[in-house]
Design a protein around this nucleic acid. Structure first.
Lengths: 144, 144
DNA sequence: TTAATAAAGGACAATTATATCCTTTATTAA
DNA sequence: TTAATAAAGGATATAATTGTCCTTTATTAA
């Protein structure tokens, strides 16, 4: 479904949101430990997310990654996925055709529409704030 | 969503089904032209599908690939996907956790369930025969 | 029985995704 | 102002996926 980068990125962002929700910045070391991801690789992913304003970062001692509480309600899973995997998950053809639409559909085009719409809707409506709240109430896992 | 192998495989199988439905065997050359896929790579994919009895093949002149009409009603898209991409699409965690279930769920586990189920259902209920019929009635594309 | 045809299969090449290492830059606090 | 800290960034390595080439095997039809 998602690339490894996107999987790590989503896990990282959810963890950062959870921590930011209790006013804690987190370092790369802490993040990659919490989500069990390769540290240097996770650094690259976080750089992308920082450049695209999904997360904020501060260098130096007491630095780290965080998400502003006001932003948290505005950033959705979809934003994270867009940055790391582009919009292929929304627009890409299930059979890999470079163009596939109502006018020139592949044989599965119409069968995929509902599934795509549901996925899109879920990603777009789920904000980081909602997930941070969920993490408080329920024991969800970001690593095994 | 699917690997390139799986995309080519699905397109190939739909084309073979369409042709078998009018009692035509098709060669690798014809298939890869019809679905615009790299020929040698498509050969490998078809070998896998043949080994797993999704399609049948015959060597020599007047040989080629085909699907028996009786089988066509029994083989679903899900069978093709299972052979080429395994069952990761059904069981894999959206965030990439090696184990993720009702007891130890990732934060998105329950949000993905409906989407997964819908996809699974679509793939399992869509048979090659249905697609061959669809191809007769509607101008669907297997290449751009 | 032979020449032609077409799939099967092995070996290898190219590309992309994943992952690591090391240096540089910015920030903090002593 | 300096030493320590932590992210940013460049270069490179590894692994997986995608793709090609060439030989072998099976089958057909002349």
């Amino acid at each position: 479904m998602f690339s490894k980068s996107c999987e790590y990125g989503l896990r990282a962002v959810i963890f950062i949101a959870q921590q930011s929700n209790i006013d804690e910045k987190v370092s790369l070391t802490v993040i990659s430990e919490a989500i069990d991801s390769p540290q240097a690789f996770t650094a690259k992913i976080l750089q992308q997310l920082t450049k695209n304003n999904v997360v904020k970062s501060l260098k130096g001692p007491s630095g780290g990654f965080y998400i502003e509480k006001t932003q948290m309600k505005l950033i959705s899973l979809s934003d994270v996925v867009q940055v790391l995997d582009g919009n292929n998950i929304y627009t890409g053809c299930g059979l890999g055709l470079s163009q596939c639409n109502e006018e020139e559909p592949c044989p599965l085009h119409f069968k995929f529409i509902k599934i795509r719409e549901d996925l899109k809707s879920m990603l777009q409506t789920t904000t980081l704030f909602m997930l941070a709240k969920d993490m408080k109430q329920t024991n969800f896992f970001l690593k095994v």
